[in-house]
């Protein structure tokens, strides 16, 4: 199979994960969707390291695997289990409206607006740019703290993929530092989610109403 085709397949899966996230009702599904996304990333990086026979990228792939596929979902799942926060709380828009917005965003992503990105085929544009916009939309639409974390992590994945498809060459050291940055972010935000649950009693972000104006 053509390598390009393979990679596009991965991108498609990433995209579908985001769609699933938007529709899902349970937090565990969200986390699994994120896990699969990250797995795709690992796959992409793995193939790249194989192609270029680069040891450094291989290390990056492994660290990626450890952090995003193994540690992060575990952390989040633990929070859910400990505090029984499985329901993803309500969203602002119901499912049909959500899907409608997603469709609009996809159309926007492949429209003329983004045509300068000649390095990407229209399909890729929908998948990647649309994916980013949808992640942000997801973060806005959801009221649960964990959903917001997943939204941000998903956005980060998309940006990473986007950079890759644009042909960005980064030194391995940089990629590793970014990964560690994400790692710390995940740790800190999970600590915060626990604190929120302790203080406010739920992960519904709209309960945070103390500060206004």
């Amino acid at each position: 199979m053509n390598i390009i085709f393979q990679l596009q397949l991965f991108a498609l899966v990433i995209f579908l994960c985001i769609v699933v996230m938007n529709i899902a009702k349970k937090n565990t599904i969200l986390i699994f969707a994120y896990l699969i996304q990250s797995l795709m990333l690992v796959a992409i990086m793995g193939i790249k390291s194989y192609h270029e026979m680069s040891f450094e990228i291989g290390i990056v792939t492994i660290i990626l695997l450890i952090i995003k596929v193994i540690i992060a979902p575990q952390l989040l799942l633990r929070i859910i289990k400990q505090h029984k926060a499985n329901i993803s709380a309500t969203t602002y828009l119901n499912v049909p409206m959500t899907l409608g917005c997603l469709v609009i965003l996809s159309i926007f992503a492949q429209s003329d607006v983004f045509s300068p990105f000649t390095a990407l085929t229209p399909l890729l544009r929908v998948l990647l740019i649309g994916g980013m916009l949808m992640s942000i939309f997801f973060t806005i639409n959801r009221k649960g703290a964990i959903s917001q974390i997943i939204g941000i992590l998903s956005l980060e994945n998309c940006i990473f993929t986007f950079g890759y498809f644009l042909g960005l060459q980064q030194s391995a050291a940089l990629e590793i530092s970014m990964l560690f940055d994400v790692f710390f972010w995940i740790i800190i935000s999970s600590i915060f989610v626990r604190t929120i649950i302790k203080h406010f009693g739920s992960i519904d972000v709209t309960q945070l109403r103390e500060l206004k104006k």
Partner: peptide
């Protein structure tokens, strides 16, 4: 005008999102 600071974080993100879309169209 003070009402824009409603206390709702999703609303805050919405401001950024809409601005982003708008400016992207402007840039194009």
């Amino acid at each position: 005008i003070r009402k824009i600071q409603s206390g709702n974080v999703n609303q805050y993100l919405l401001y950024i999102f809409i601005l982003l879309l708008g400016l992207l169209i402007f840039a194009r």
